[in-house]
């Protein structure tokens, strides 16, 4: 579709419910997969809750869209960076995060989640062509 491949990073900083940002950010991410770009996602601040385990929205009446993150691997979106400090500040560990995976070229299942420090994240952001945060 395009001759140039750019590095797109979607930075998710907000909780999945309470505002629409997480849901509508995911919609952009899924569309971006069709453009054959180098796409990565970041979950930091309250954004780490977007991919937390066992989300249940029944009582709040909000639409639970957390299963959609599990489809990202099928769209070749497999660089999901979770900020270590954000987890720690909220009393979370990787055990509280969904087990998101993708299949590599040999059909081997690999983890999509990569734990990174705030400093490492800064370096990753520096490498990007387009950073869209919400």
């Amino acid at each position: 579709m395009s001759e140039s491949i750019k590095k797109f990073m979607f930075v998710n900083t907000k909780a999945p419910y309470g505002t629409v940002y997480a849901l509508e950010s995911l919609e952009v991410v899924l569309i971006s997969a069709a453009f054959d770009q180098d796409v990565s996602l970041v979950f930091c601040d309250d954004g780490v809750f977007q991919i937390s385990n066992n989300q249940n929205t029944e009582a709040s009446g909000m639409k639970n869209f957390s299963n959609a993150y599990k489809a990202l691997g099928d769209y070749d979106i497999n660089k999901l960076y979770v900020e270590k400090e954000s987890l720690e500040e909220r009393g979370l560990t990787l055990d509280n995060i969904m087990d998101l995976t993708y299949e590599d070229e040999d059909w081997a299942e690999k983890p999509s989640i990569k734990l990174v420090t705030r400093a490492e994240l800064a370096d990753l952001m520096d490498e990007q062509d387009v950073v869209i945060s919400s």
């Binding site: 750019k6 797109f8 919609e27 569309i31 069709a34 453009f35 770009q37 387009v130 869209i132």
Partner: peptide, 17 residues
């Protein structure tokens, strides 16, 4: 559609939010 946003990011030198 949202593809116009992604395409805008590809074509421009800078995307500003």
């Amino acid at each position: 559609g949202l593809g116009q946003l992604v395409e805008g990011g590809i074509q421009a030198d800078r995307l500003l939010t």
